[in-house]
């Protein structure tokens, strides 16, 4: 007899949900880390994301 829900299906489903949550958390961490890195390097050119010399404060 063919059962619609074998134990293997429920186990795989819970594992896949777990992996999905882990991947979503990973994406959030990468996003958060990127936001922190980008906002902590000072004034930047917007087109190539390097420090903009014109905005750098000159040493007196």
């Amino acid at each position: 007899m063919i059962r619609a829900e074998h134990e293997i299906h429920t186990r795989r489903k819970s594992r896949n949900v777990g992996v999905g949550l882990i991947l979503a958390t990973f994406a959030l961490i990468v996003f958060g880390l990127s936001a922190v890195k980008i906002t902590n390097v000072g004034p930047q050119e917007s087109f190539d994301h390097v420090v903009r010399p014109a905005l750098a404060v000159e040493d007196s």
Binding site: E7, I8, R11, R12, S14, R15, G18, V19
Partner: peptide
């Protein structure tokens, strides 16, 4: 048999 569904050396589908 149910064991034919799983990888060699394991008795059931591994969970997280």
């Amino acid at each position: 048999a149910d064991t034919d569904l799983y990888a060699p050396g394991v008795a059931r589908e591994p969970g997280l």
